[in-house]
């Protein structure tokens, strides 16, 4: 019996020590809920060390789909939300969950498809026409289906193309409910079309026979915005640290850092914080 008590005391002490250890490290840090595209493309890996060097603030990025990231902000589990779905962002601010939306940068979506191009859309600059052709050909198409910014953009493009995807979808339209990477992996494995953000595509390594089929359409423009979670809703939000991250992102230094990030010599994100109405 005494031995058991000893074990409990030792165990509990070790535990208390172990759990108290990382309290110290939590001093100067914020949590940013962002999207898979900014993390998987490596952008944050480039930005955060620069920001940390300047301010000493640890930025902890949780990567989720845009919808989920906004939810995380709504629950107060993040200090800053950094996503790409403008209408949802504006609603987030209007509902009082975010303080103010600031435009940060953009990149664009590209339609990825197999080299064999069964829907004959390769080289087109008209995304809606391409989508209609895919539908008509019944060529396999992977949808994120996860309420992410990319998913929202895809649904919006179907709508502009005049396709009621909820009604028209057949076995060719595969809704996987997963992140960008998983969607690209699935497309690669099944030679399907998929809408992706350029950043993730450029840093994606398991391409197989996939290539860019459609790019350059103005409607493929993809704007990123950043918001501080409203401290009036969630008192624990690290207002000052979070705001300094936002301020840095839209400062000349932050904007330059974004422009400087390249994969294979190609710029992934285009800063536009100073462009009115972005």
């Amino acid at each position: 019996m005494r031995k058991l008590k000893h074990a409990f005391v030792i165990g509990a002490t070790a535990l208390a020590l172990a759990l108290s250890q990382n309290v110290v490290a939590q001093d100067k840090s914020i949590i940013v809920a962002s999207t898979t595209s900014t993390v998987d493309s490596g952008l944050f890996g480039h930005l955060l060390p620069l920001f940390k060097a300047k301010t000493g603030i640890d930025v902890r990025v949780v990567s989720q789909g845009t919808g989920q990231a906004l939810d995380t902000g709504r629950r107060g589990d993040a200090d800053v939300v950094f996503v790409h779905a403008r209408s949802q962002e504006e609603k987030f601010v209007a509902d009082g969950f975010g303080v103010k939306r600031s435009a940060v940068m953009y990149n664009d979506f590209v339609l990825i498809g197999p080299k064999s191009d069964p829907a004959k859309v390769k080289g087109s600059k008209d995304i809606t026409a391409a989508l209609v052709k895919i539908r008509n050909a019944g060529a396999p198409f992977i949808s994120r289906g996860d309420k992410s910014g990319t998913h929202a953009a895809e649904l919006n493009l179907w709508k502009i193309a005049g396709v009621d995807i909820a009604k028209d979808k057949g076995p060719w339209y595969r809704d996987i409910g997963q992140g960008m990477g998983a969607a690209l992996n699935t497309a690669s494995a099944s030679n399907a079309y998929v809408l992706a953000d350029r950043g993730t595509w450029l840093s994606f390594k398991n391409r197989g026979d996939l290539i860019i089929s459609v790019e350059g359409d103005k409607r493929l423009f993809n704007q990123y915005g950043v918001m501080l979670v409203n401290p009036a809703k969630h008192a624990h939000v690290k207002k000052d640290l979070g705001q300094s991250f936002i301020d840095w992102l839209i400062s000349p230094a932050g904007q330059k850092a974004i422009a400087d990030y390249k994969v294979g010599g190609e710029q992934l994100f285009f800063p536009n914080a100073t462009v009115p109405g972005a």
């Binding site: 898979t36 993390v39 998987d40 990477g181 998983a182 390594k205 398991n206």
Partner: peptide, 8 residues
Amino acid sequence: LETSKGDL
């Protein structure tokens, strides 16, 4: 994460 980045 590496799987989702396609780095199998």
